[in-house]
């Protein structure tokens, strides 16, 4: 069976995205994947704060119920914030989706096998925490259902894309957090005031 390519998969999920879709990317390859799919102002790239992506998405989703918030992160980052799935499930924001790009490895640090490559099923964990729906894509044909889930369905939802552990060329967006924050805030504040760009 052909493995799903992570970069192509994220590009497919984000193709044709509306300005009202706010994306937070977890550190490492998910940040490169999201930037490669289109470096737009409605992306907030994390370069650190490992384990915090889902929680950051929750705070943003609660503050902006008019927008859809999509957190795109890796299995290692999600595992470090596993407790945040319990918090998200309990809080249950309808406009929040998590998408885990799961290569079952710590890709940035030498490809060591992660817990999802052994025993942990993140979709099952999310469901047990009270998420409304989850879906896992193992092959290309499953991607449409995951895209529908994370972009449209009532949250909290969690999608998993199982992918290979090949290292791809890095696509490096802005690293200065002050610039990332100001760019993102300016874009979404203008949208809130109806000055859609």
């Amino acid at each position: 069976m052909q493995m799903i390519g992570r970069r192509e998969a994220i590009a497919e999920v984000l193709t044709g995205r509306p300005d009202s879709l706010l994306v937070i990317s977890g550190l490492g390859s998910p940040t490169y994947d999201v930037a490669a799919a289109g470096d737009v102002a409605q992306n907030f790239y994390l370069w650190g704060a490992m384990g915090g992506a889902a929680s950051m998405g929750l705070g943003l989703a609660l503050a902006r119920p008019d927008a859809r918030v999509l957190v795109i992160t890796g299995d290692g980052e999600m595992l470090m914030g596993l407790g945040s799935l319990a918090t998200l499930g309990a809080k249950a924001p309808a406009n929040l989706a998590i998408l885990v790009i799961d290569n079952e490895a710590f890709g940035e640090t030498g490809g060591q096998t992660s817990h999802t490559g052994k025993t942990t099923n993140l979709a099952a964990v999310a469901l047990a925490c009270g998420f409304k729906q989850v879906a896992t894509a193992h092959k290309q044909a499953d991607l449409d259902a995951v895209k529908q889930l994370v972009l449209e369905d009532a949250g909290p939802v969690l999608g998993v894309i199982k992918t290979g552990s090949d290292e791809l060329p890095r696509v490096l967006p802005e690293r200065d957090g002050h610039i990332i924050r100001n760019t993102f805030k300016t874009a979404i504040t203008n949208q809130q005031h109806g000055e859609s760009k």
Binding site: G52, A53, S55, G57, A61, L62, A63, R64, Q192
Partner: peptide, 22 residues
């Protein structure tokens, strides 16, 4: 109000809230 499983979640959560203007 959001009850957390560990305090570090709250740091990230309130950063997200600030991004959204709260």
């Amino acid at each position: 109000c959001t009850v957390l499983t560990t305090e570090e979640e709250g740091v990230a959560l309130l950063a997200g809230a600030e991004l959204g203007g709260q």
